[in-house]
């Protein structure tokens, strides 16, 4: 991980995004004391991360990315095992959540599907009455209905005042559930913005395609002169982020500029956050 500063707010679901190997799980493990950072500091709900992080883990819950479990234990026994060291009420609440999710708690975990194991872990992570919940890919392996159910549960938690940090590498899944997105790439925090601001940026993104063989990089300074705040190019494509300029006005200027080749395709106003990350940060896989 490369150094960065970030503060998560209560009552908000924050999404930690990035492609595989970007450092999401490592960051979450560092926050919960499972991996020790070489330097730097963190605190969770007022508890500083020290030693093996026990004080931090008492103030938060962590749902690991691993789904390996003790197959010989029943779902109920697993919940008890996960929640060892927590108040009794945590077990009751976790059992309620697991029941609501339709998990067969009397069955041995070896009979559970991957998705059911994830839901059992989620129930355990939502059981304790803590202010912070840290979840490593909570929707991974779930069908769309369950995914929506889980995200709704997390939104409820945030509405109740909890700080929820979840990781995912599926931007399209979590952008509606998260109020804020942190984007990691190769261990580096490359974006930290609220989702509405990012969506606004995506709306201000214009993609231009010229005939094959055109060097879009050479045209970047010209596009900037025509009003683009940022230009990212690849082959015969360029993505321009507009700041204070209407896309139609910008595109008209491009069309009229005699020193800019005529584009073969233009797109604006329909970009997703995924396009934004791909075009602006050059990161694929989210």
């Amino acid at each position: 991980m490369l150094p960065f500063d970030v503060e998560l707010r209560a009552g908000e679901v924050t999404g930690l995004l990035g492609p595989n190997g970007s450092g999401k799980s490592t960051f979450l493990r560092m926050l919960t004391g499972l991996v020790r950072p070489d330097r730097g500091a963190a605190s969770v709900d007022g508890a500083r991360l020290r030693g093996d992080g026990t004080a931090v883990r008492r103030r938060c819950t962590y749902m690991p990315g691993e789904t390996a479990m003790y197959g010989e234990l029943s779902g109920a026994a697993h919940l008890a095992w996960f929640l060892r060291g927590r108040a009794r009420a945590a077990r009751r609440r976790a059992t309620e959540i697991a029941d609501d999710l339709g998990l067969p708690l009397r069955k041995r975990v070896r009979a559970y599907s991957h998705g059911m194991k994830r839901q059992l872990q989620l129930a355990a992570a939502l059981g304790p009455d803590v202010a912070v919940r840290i979840l490593d890919e909570p929707t991974e392996g779930l069908d769309p209905t369950k995914r929506a159910e889980v995200l709704a549960l997390l939104a409820e938690e945030a509405t109740a005042g909890a700080t929820v940090l979840l990781s995912s590498h599926h931007l399209a899944e979590v952008d509606r559930a998260c109020a804020r997105l942190l984007f990691l790439s190769e261990g580096k925090l490359i974006a930290d913005e609220n989702t509405s601001a990012l969506s606004d940026r995506a709306r201000r993104l214009v993609r231009i395609t010229w005939p094959d063989g055109t060097d879009a990089a050479a045209l970047a300074p010209r596009l900037e002169a025509l009003g683009a705040a940022e230009v990212h190019s690849r082959g015969a494509h360029a993505s321009a982020l507009l700041e204070g300029v209407e896309p139609r006005v910008f595109l008209a200027a491009v069309a009229q500029a005699g020193d800019v080749p005529t584009p073969t395709a233009l797109a604006y106003g329909e970009h997703s956050l995924r396009d934004l990350y791909r075009d602006l940060y050059g990161v694929e896989g989210v």
Binding site: T32, D52, T54, R57, R58, P64, E66, M69, R84
Partner: peptide
């Protein structure tokens, strides 16, 4: 080896 070390350590109990 069976991948349960993370859930073992994720509980609010000290490693010692």
């Amino acid at each position: 080896h069976r991948g349960t070390l993370e859930i073992w350590l994720a509980r609010p109990l000290s490693r010692n």
